Measured scan of single mutants.
Amino acid sequence: MTFKAIINGKTLKGETTTEAVDAATAEKVFKQYFNDNGLDGEWTYDDATKTFTVTE
């Protein structure tokens, strides 16, 4: 399945996608990506659209 992340950061904005077997796996991938890029913020997840949003 394809999962999307919308990034609303102070220094980084945009979208990225990942292929994962479930939402928990996708969340781990996205959180690692955000940690690697120095992002920290509020997380939400919309199961209907398979979209994570992080707002810094």
Rank of each mutant, 00 (worst) to 15 (best):
M1A: 09
M1T: 13
T2Q: 11
T2D: 10
T2I: 14
T2K: 13
T2N: 08
F3C: 09
F3L: 03
K4F: 09
K4Q: 06
A5I: 14
A5N: 03
A5H: 02
I6T: 04
I7P: 00
I7W: 15
I7F: 15
N8D: 08
N8A: 11
N8R: 11
G9T: 15
G9Q: 09
G9N: 04
K10N: 11
T11A: 09
T11Y: 13
T11E: 10
T11S: 12
L12S: 08
L12G: 09
K13Y: 13
K13I: 11
K13R: 13
G14F: 15
G14W: 15
G14K: 11
E15D: 04
E15T: 11
T16D: 02
T16I: 15
T16P: 02
T17N: 04
T17P: 01
T17S: 11
T18V: 13
T18W: 12
T18Y: 08
E19M: 12
E19R: 14
E19W: 15
E19F: 15
A20G: 02
A20M: 01
A20R: 03
A20H: 02
A20Y: 02
V21W: 10
V21S: 10
D22H: 02
D22R: 00
A23Q: 07
A23G: 03
A24E: 12
A24I: 11
A24D: 08
A24W: 10
T25F: 05
T25H: 10
T25Y: 06
A26Y: 01
E27V: 04
E27F: 15
E27M: 13
K28P: 02
K28S: 09
K28L: 12
V29Y: 15
V29N: 07
F30V: 01
F30G: 01
Q32H: 07
Q32Y: 04
Q32A: 11
Y33A: 05
Y33N: 03
Y33H: 06
Y33Q: 06
Y33S: 02
F34C: 15
F34W: 09
N35R: 14
D36L: 13
D36E: 12
D36Q: 12
D36W: 11
D36H: 07
N37F: 15
N37S: 12
N37D: 05
L39Y: 12
L39Q: 05
L39H: 04
L39R: 04
D40R: 12
D40M: 13
D40W: 14
G41R: 05
G41E: 04
E42N: 07
E42H: 10
E42D: 11
E42C: 12
E42W: 10
W43S: 01
W43G: 01
W43L: 06
T44D: 08
T44M: 07
T44A: 08
Y45E: 00
Y45F: 05
Y45L: 02
D46M: 02
D46Y: 02
D46P: 01
D47V: 08
D47Y: 06
D47C: 06
A48E: 12
A48T: 10
A48K: 09
T49W: 03
K50H: 12
K50L: 09
K50N: 08
T51W: 00
T51K: 01
F52R: 00
F52T: 01
T53R: 04
T53F: 15
T53N: 06
V54A: 03
V54F: 15
V54P: 02
V54L: 13
T55Q: 08
T55H: 07
T55K: 05
E56S: 07
